[in-house]
Design a protein around this nucleic acid. Structure first.
Length: 488
RNA sequence: GGCCCUGUCGUCUAACGGUUAGGACACAAGAUUCUCAAUUUUGUAAUCGGAGUUCGAUUCUCCGCAGGGUCACCA
């Protein structure tokens, strides 16, 4: 069996969509599994939609998500080739020069609409003798090359996911193959490239299924073998339709900015339209955590679902939290530091973090780890470990409502005074802090929980924080003194 | 609207024509607990509707209905 070759073929028209990462993942995984070749082909044949920098971002994102390519190509480098094949198709009678202008076509549509009849494209140049067409071309007439779709033909091909697909050629119109600017359209370029580059398996979204018969016709005209087609379903928005911007990020780079871990996103994405084919005991918990390596081993595009999947952001968040929890402490430090440098704009916090060093950061991160879903939540959560928190009105805290502020103040003062009697308190561990504060509450007949809360708010600036004792240990006595003093 | 595809808990999904229709996220309740989380236990929740085939249908067929894709000199 010959080696497989697949391609991921994005257009540089803006940020790479997260669905593109899924497409790339499936293509990549399949080649990794079968030791094939994975090509990234930049489909930049629309000069109007070209966005500078977008191509570089595509490659950057593929790498950032842990994937890699074996080869790459750019369609704008291959214009000559497409032109040759367009002309060859004309010679073969599978295409023709068309001199209809866009205005003339618009006029056709308008007339159809006025007469309330469905519009069907038709060109009087379809059967113009080639010699005459060439004469017009030589004379400098503007033209496009259109595919000459045969009349009354049934086009049948097999899709590995959708099954046998049958289309009637009469429902397809003579689409443009070569535009008047000399660039090919997708339909020409994809067929020429896939053949010339030796693509064996074409994995792409179902939005391409309706145009697949056009491609089949082109393969046929040129006498080429079809690749295996896999048209997989789209990712849907919770509101229906394609995944849209309104409810959150949609581009690969935005998810990274928000502090999602690529491996978590990959794990989420691989399960959108696919599930592992494994024997399961009835009622058994099913595995959902898969590394890229696991996935490569298990994935087969033939197992892909036919149904579109809704992008469930809650579940993505859950995956991300899981992956953060699974990170070793030192790895979390590294991952967070990289994210911070790249995407955070909180300069003062960044400076403070660098100043205190990685060991301190590691301690701090371990305290917030189980509370973090995405990395961008961390700065807010850890800032009090680095910066003096804002003063809070204690009586506004729910748990401190029915406690006399005077009594509280007295106890807090005692807390500081008593503490000085212990010579080695600078080295106190969290257990020491805990037993000390508990005793203090007991002697003063204060509810332990209330004293804890008061200290928590004074030290951290918020009623929701990581464990108090560990936090005190981490901050150290000097800092605790300063913060509590601010309330006296 | 034409053509094509798809309908299992709210969502992602599992189930040789035979299971009390399973798992995960979310949600709810309990346990744990210094707060918030995390963890853990339990629970609520689905085969779109109608005919047929069959001893038996989530699974096969047909008809409805619903959702999606597509009908560009965009990919």
């Amino acid at each position: 069996m010959k080696n497989i070759k697949v391609r991921f073929a994005p257009s540089p028209t803006g940020h790479l969509h997260i669905g593109g990462i899924r497409t790339a993942l499936w293509n990549f995984a399949y080649t990794q599994k079968l030791k094939g070749e994975f090509m990234v082909r930049i489909e930049d044949t629309d000069q109007n939609r070209f966005v500078p920098g977008s191509e570089a971002e595509i490659f950057e994102m593929i790498s950032a998500y842990g994937l890699s390519w074996d080869s790459k190509a750019r369609q704008s480098d291959r214009i000559k080739i497409y032109q040759e094949y367009a002309e060859k198709l004309v010679e073969l009678g599978a295409a023709y020069y068309c001199f209809l202008t866009e205005n003339e076509i618009a006029e056709q549509k308008k007339i159809a609409a006025e007469n309330k009849i469905p519009y069907k494209f038709g060109s009087q140049y379809r059967d113009l003798p080639l010699a005459e067409a060439k004469k017009k071309v030589a004379a400098g007439d503007k033209f496009v090359i259109r595919q000459k779709i045969p009349v009354g033909r049934e086009i049948v091909f097999v899709d590995q996911i959708q099954g046998k697909a049958t289309f009637n050629s009469d429902e397809i119109n003579d689409g443009v193959l070569l535009k008047s600017d000399g660039f090919p359209t997708y339909h020409l370029a994809v067929v020429v490239d896939d053949h010339l580059m030796g693509i064996t398996h074409a994995l792409r979204g179902t939005e391409w299924l309706p145009s697949a018969p056009k491609h089949v016709l082109l393969y046929e005209a040129l006498g080429w073998d079809l690749p295996e087609f896999f048209h997989f379903p789209l990712i849907l928005d919770p509101d229906g339709g394609k995944l849209s911007k309104r409810k959150g990020s949609v581009s690969a780079i935005e998810f990274l900015k928000e502090g999602y871990l690529p491996e978590a996103i990959l794990n989420f994405l691989m399960l959108l339209g696919w599930s592992p084919k494994v024997e399961r005991e009835y009622g058994e918990k099913e595995r959902e955590i898969f590394s890229l390596a696991d996935f490569i081993e298990l994935f087969d595009p033939h197992d892909l679902n036919k149904t579109a999947a809704v992008f469930n952001r809650e579940k993505l968040l859950w995956f991300n939290q899981k992956y953060i929890q699974m990170l070793e402490p030192d790895m979390l430090v590294i991952r967070f530091s990289i994210w911070l440098k790249k995407y955070s704009e909180n300069e003062s916090l960044i400076a403070a973090i660098i100043d205190r060093g990685p060991d301190y950061l590691e301690k701090v991160l371990e305290l917030v780890k189980s509370r973090v879903r995405i990395l961008s939540e961390i700065p807010q959560m850890i800032s009090f470990y680095y910066q003096f928190p804002a003063l809070v009105n204690l009586s506004a805290i729910k748990q401190l409502k029915n406690i006399d502020p005077k009594i509280l103040k007295t106890v807090i003062k005692k807390f500081l005074v008593e503490l000085e009697k212990y010579p080695d308190f600078a080295k106190w561990q969290h257990e020491d802090w805990e037993s000390y504060v508990r005793k203090l509450a007991e002697y003063n007949q204060l509810k332990a929980g209330q004293l804890f809360m008061a200290l928590r708010v004074m030290i951290t600036g918020t009623p929701f924080s990581p464990p108090l004792w560990e936090t005190m240990e981490t901050l150290g006595q000097q800092e605790i003194f300063k913060r509590i003093n601010a309330y006296l």
